[in-house]
Design a protein around this nucleic acid. Sequence first.
DNA 1: ATAATACGCAACACAACGGTTGCACATAAC
DNA 2: GTTATGTGCAACCGTTGTGTTGCGTATTAT
Lengths: 122, 122
Amino acid sequence: MSRSAAGGAGGAAQLRETEAVPVFAALADATRLRLLRRLSSGESLSISRLSEGERVTRQAITRHLYALGRAGLVRHQRKGREQVWDLDLKRLEKARGYLDHVAAQWDQAALRLKAFVEETEK
Amino acid sequence: MSRSAAGGAGGAAQLRETEAVPVFAALADATRLRLLRRLSSGESLSISRLSEGERVTRQAITRHLYALGRAGLVRHQRKGREQVWDLDLKRLEKARGYLDHVAAQWDQAALRLKAFVEETEK
DNA sequence: ATAATACGCAACACAACGGTTGCACATAAC
DNA sequence: GTTATGTGCAACCGTTGTGTTGCGTATTAT
């Protein structure tokens, strides 16, 4: 275990949670998680390329990509007749903060629960 | 930063991602995040208690709690005329694994992207 | 016994989500 | 110039999610 920052001074906790919602929503889909994973290779990929192997239409993939984009996880860029997508590292790092924050919250909960049990068993 | 475990041997990645979906879906709501936070105190809370301060009806809260329950994050228990809810620590730890997994994936993506840039700038 | 509290169930409304199809348009490729 | 490829746009549809209201039932308090 051991998590340092994130849950520390719980000042901005409230605000962070609301900010985290769109991120979690974006991650709540298997197709989108796959897209993110493919983009994690570091290679920019076009919509058609990203549609290969998926069982849904290109249009569906396009929508998923924009969904990820709205959450700030990916960006796109025109390249000839193609539209290529990349991870947005800056925002991604911020999003990671949300994950860490929630994880830290759960760690603290675990500690508190253990304390509860110990006190009860006294 | 620096993250060690969690994403380590990325063998079960595919499987984990699908398992993670319901968890992320459960976290993709401000009300549910608040409920989780309140339950993180370690104290078992009834539906009525958890409804206090929220701007939606008790029924809405009930549904949110069951949504969290379906994702395996919380459990409930009958106590007289009340139904009290707790965090499900065991499952919670597993869910934390999902968060760490995704976070680790992003870290690796960052490294790959840096490598990409360096190679391009040669 | 009566009243207050805590909850369960069911029906309903509405918006959001995920996916599809059909077609138009722009850019490469030949 | 023609053809093939990659996208964009819009309409449409079924499902799921979120919230409500109304009412019934169980438990606790007085």
